[in-house]
Design a protein around this nucleic acid. Structure first.
Length: 670
DNA sequence: CTGCCTCGAGTTCG
DNA sequence: CTCGAGGCAG
């Protein structure tokens, strides 16, 4: 074999491996073998400069940086699609198409709309010669060298088509590559990217193609420009693109009616999170090219296709300010004040920014135009700025050194993420603690929410928890916006809370590391506040799940004179200091089983379901693991249900769950 | 020491 | 719901 033949053979093997990996998704050689072939080829090319070629897989490492991106005129304009936001609009589109064509039924092809950047790639005699961004559709930017480093873009077609050939598609970044990229940047101290599309867009427009390569961009082709006559439909064109060596998205469906297209849209709007890349809708195209031609294009949009857009999950808006609030544990929480923006039917005005480190690592500045997402989790997040829109007037945020409410020093212990107000009687903390004390999981005082807590503290009526129990209706009615009737209801609710029992009282006190579960264990093992107050750290650690940190925190709470006095005042007011409530059933079929509740149940609240389970001796927890016995999934169950399936944990729907409850209960009835 | 598993804390809108 | 961090088993 001559050297030239060996070089050609290596290139063919590497191209084939690439095709099997990126297009067929079925690798046939190991990464190590691939690297070995690549090394041999590189060595041969270095030794024989006359054998070098732009089309060699070795060139995917990235050529020398270019000075700028030259404008490229698209011979055929890169069209945009008209948008539809509802099934009604899709049906109207279908009617118009059928009327214009005079057909009673038209076949469509449905393709996922990948959230990336559209590009055009040109080939001459089967060899990649030029790539360009969409630009405004008529003129784009030349990004040939950047596209060359994207493994999914074939450098040579699998058939050497004579003359010019052009395909179009989407450059995008997989979620997994996006996460890895951000992780790397975080380690390097570089700001995170807000979303995969921005990272891909920036990556493709790097002057140094080697930088583009590091982003690990991917590619899907979806358009064959100027198809030959024997290719008469879009689905045949996709098939052809695949044969030629382009990655083509597999989630495509040819349908015989608009109803099926609507079903496809609904299905993928539901399933969009299953994919490793982001999609923002579905492109619906008339399948037959002769029909497409007859329908033509008006203004900028073709009349033969429409883009169904999913409900938005993100939007851009202005970050007008960052305010700082004080939490019940004294944490200083930065909040984003946003110009109101609608995402998925809800208007967002505020969002948490967590802490100073989050703001810095995402490079968020006051005055920025920011991207806000509201994904599967309902709570919106500010994920990052659009740096291109900066004016230079943006301000970097710094955490205040003094509490914005009481003016006390702010402290941030080494290694901790949160800054804290050091004043234990800071009014803001008092309000938040009071709210927590009255909350559902704690003393459950109905009618005592954030507004009233604020009024009680600022009006000087409550300085510690016990003061609540001295309130009477006339004094409450003196507060703004509280009538005689609601004042009476509140007094009754406060009185009722005296009998909640030790667990809930412990939760309400807000001892660090003591939440619902830990409080329940402490109440179970120590039975009374007095016994708990006397327990030393080693006694506490004998309880299940209590380690040195929690034990020390509990000890510290009871060691402080102020807390002991507060507890005495509560006891004097008549608040129960022992565990109340029902003894669990001695024996039942589900005793000791671990349940996780997720989603919304129709016939009961999550709290009620939890109570019912606990009375039967079962345990509930918040996260699904291999130790979980059952997951109860209501409607709109989220990631926990997914995890249950991954771990093969039995899943009960509401019916099955109710049956289990009643069957378990009946033997204990007489 | 490492890798689960679990808990606590903070979170938005209507 | 997600993150951070404590508890605990191997």
């Amino acid at each position: 074999m001559t050297t030239r033949e060996r070089v050609e053979s290596l290139r063919a093997q590497l191209d084939e491996a690439n095709y099997r990996y990126y297009v067929l998704d079925a690798p046939t050689i190991s990464d190590a073998r691939y690297d070995q072939l690549m090394r041999e080829l590189r060595d041969l090319e270095e030794a024989h400069p006359d054998l070098q070629s732009d089309l060699s897989p070795t060139r995917r490492v990235g050529a020398a940086p270019s000075q700028r991106f030259a404008p490229v005129e698209h011979a055929t304009p890169m069209l945009s699609l008209a948008n539809a936001f509802s099934s009604e609009e899709l049906r109207a589109f279908d009617e118009r198409v059928r009327k214009l064509l005079g057909e009673s039924a038209v076949r469509y092809i449905c393709e996922l709309k990948i959230d990336g950047l559209a590009v055009a790639v040109r080939y001459r005699d089967g060899a990649f010669v030029r790539g360009a961004t969409r630009g405004d559709g008529r003129v784009g930017e030349e990004v040939t060298e950047n596209l060359r480093v994207i493994p999914g873009v074939p450098l040579r077609l699998r058939e050497a088509i004579r003359g010019d050939f052009e395909a179009r598609g989407e450059v995008y970044l997989r979620r997994s590559d996006f996460d890895a990229l951000n992780l790397r940047r975080e380690r390097e101290g570089a700001p995170r990217f807000a979303n995969p599309r921005n990272a891909a867009s920036g990556g493709l427009r790097q002057l140094d193609p080697a930088q583009t390569r590091e982003r690990r961009l991917s590619f899907f082709a979806y358009t064959l420009v100027e198809p030959p006559p024997e290719i008469a439909t879009q689905h045949a064109a996709l098939e052809r693109l695949r044969e030629l060596g382009f990655p083509v998205n597999p989630n495509v469906r040819a349908v015989a009616s608009i109803d099926e297209a609507v079903a496809f849209c609904d299905e993928w709007e539901r399933r969009r999170d299953e994919l490793d890349y982001e999609i923002d809708g579905v492109a619906i195209k008339v399948d037959r090219f002769d029909f497409q031609e007859r329908l033509g294009t008006v203004a900028r949009d073709p009349r033969w296709a429409i883009a169904y857009k999913f409900k938005a999950r993100e939007a851009t808006t202005k970050l007008e300010d960052i305010t700082v609030s004080v939490g019940r544990t004294g944490t200083l929480n930065p909040n984003a004040v946003l110009a109101p923006v609608e995402i998925g039917g809800i208007t967002i005005r505020n969002a948490t920014l967590h802490n100073e480190a989050y703001i810095a690592s995402n490079d968020i500045r006051i005055g920025d135009t920011v991207i806000v997402v509201r994904a599967g989790d309902v709570i919106p997040r500010v994920v990052g700025p659009i740096r291109e829109l900066r004016t230079g007037k943006e301000r970097i945020f710094h955490m205040p050194t003094h509490c914005p409410v009481c003016g006390a020093d702010v402290d941030r212990p080494d290694g901790e993420a949160m800054a804290r107000c050091t004043n234990a009687s800071c009014p803001a903390q008092l309000v938040e603690r009071l709210r927590h004390f009255a909350s559902r999981g704690a003393m459950d005082i109905e009618g005592l929410g954030d507004v009233l807590a604020e009024q009680l503290v600022s009006g000087g009526l409550v300085k510690e928890f016990a003061d609540l129990y001295a309130l009477d209706a006339p004094r409450l009615a003196a507060l703004d916006r509280l009538g005689a009737k609601s004042a009476g209801n509140l007094v009754a609710a406060i009185a009722a809370s005296k009998e909640r029992g030790l667990t809930r009282l412990l939760v309400g006190l807000g001892i660090r590391y003591v939440g619902e579960q830990t409080a329940a264990i402490l109440a179970r093992d120590f039975r009374s506040m007095a016994a708990l107050a006397e327990a030393d750290e080693s006694a506490l650690q004998r309880s299940e799940g209590i380690g040195p940190e929690v034990a020390a925190s509990v000890r510290l709470f009871f060691a402080q004179a102020r807390n002991r006095a507060a507890l005495e005042a509560l006891a004097a007011a008549g608040v129960a200091m022992e565990e109340r409530g029902v003894a669990p059933v001695a024996d039942s079929a589900i005793k000791g089983k671990r349940f996780v509740l997720t989603g919304t149940l129709a016939t009961m609240t999550r709290e009620e379901a939890k109570g019912a389970l606990e009375r039967l001796g079962a345990r509930t927890s918040e996260s699904v693991s291999a130790k979980t016995d059952y997951v109860v999934a209501g409607s709109e169950a989220g990631s926990k249900l997914q995890r249950a399936r991954d771990l093969d944990v039995p899943v009960l729907d509401e019916d099955a769950f109710c049956r289990m409850l009643s069957e378990t209960r009946s033997p204990t009835h007489r």
